[in-house]
Simulated assay, not measured.
Amino acid sequence: MLSSDQPVAPKARKAVKACGFAVLLSFGLSGCVEPLYGPKIGGVSIVPDMQAIKVEPIPDRIGHYLENELIFALNGTGSSPTPKYRLVVTVRERLSTPIVNTVTGEAQAGDVNIDADYRLYPIAGGGEPIASGNVTQFVVYDRSSQRLSNVRAARDAEIRNAKVLADQIRTRIAAALATRGS
């Protein structure tokens, strides 16, 4: 008897049917998804609105990193369009040492936690924010017995946090502007 003459097992039939159903379902749902940054069904894009957001100055070193990352994430073109919105961000940073060597008493790891509250207002007046929320990010880094390497590692952790926070804020603002415009 040839292998092609053998009957197909019921489990294999079910698996083929399930795969076929999943493919058909994905074709049916493919028209329901539209890109966040691309043209919408009405032909309007949120990219010009994102570029027209003015980021208010954020104090402290982590604020400086986050402000620069937000400016680049929202308008990486280098152009300066007339602002339609202003973004106000407040940042809280906590440093901790979760792992301590019991023999030497020195920290072996550091933890940088950053909370950022953001509010997007129209530039022409106050009122309720268009988008608001809180994003949190933390990074763990290794510490050594060298003080300067610990300072640099903590600063690198802050920069990594700022990049992730800026990306999270940009995505949330884009979603709020996209749903507001439709």
Rank of each mutant, 00 (worst) to 15 (best):
S80D: 05
S30A: 14
V44P: 02
G43S: 08
S45H: 07
H64P: 04
F27S: 14
S4P: 00
T102Y: 09
Y65F: 11
L87R: 03
P81N: 01
N75R: 02
D5A: 04
V8R: 05
E69T: 04
R160C: 02
S3V: 07
T77Q: 00
A12I: 15
Y85A: 04
P48S: 06
P57H: 00
P81E: 02
A12H: 12
P83L: 00
C19E: 08
V89R: 06
N134K: 15
M1E: 13
G20E: 13
P10G: 02
L24M: 10
P98S: 05
D49Q: 11
A124M: 13
T102I: 12
V135L: 09
K40Y: 14
L2D: 13
Y121N: 07
G20T: 10
R119Q: 14
T97G: 10
A22L: 11
D111K: 15
C19G: 06
L148M: 07
P83A: 00
A107W: 01
A131D: 02
G28D: 07
R147K: 11
A178D: 07
G125M: 05
L29T: 08
G181L: 13
A131S: 06
V164E: 14
A178H: 06
M50W: 10
G126A: 08
K84E: 07
V16W: 11
R13A: 07
N150Q: 12
S4G: 04
A153W: 00
K40I: 11
R13E: 13
T77D: 00
L25Y: 03
S26H: 00
D60P: 09
A109Q: 14
P98T: 04
V16Y: 08
Y121H: 11
R143L: 15
C32R: 15
A73M: 04
S26M: 12
I41H: 13
V8Y: 07
Y65D: 01
S30Y: 09
P122H: 08
A176L: 01
T82K: 13
R155M: 09
H64R: 10
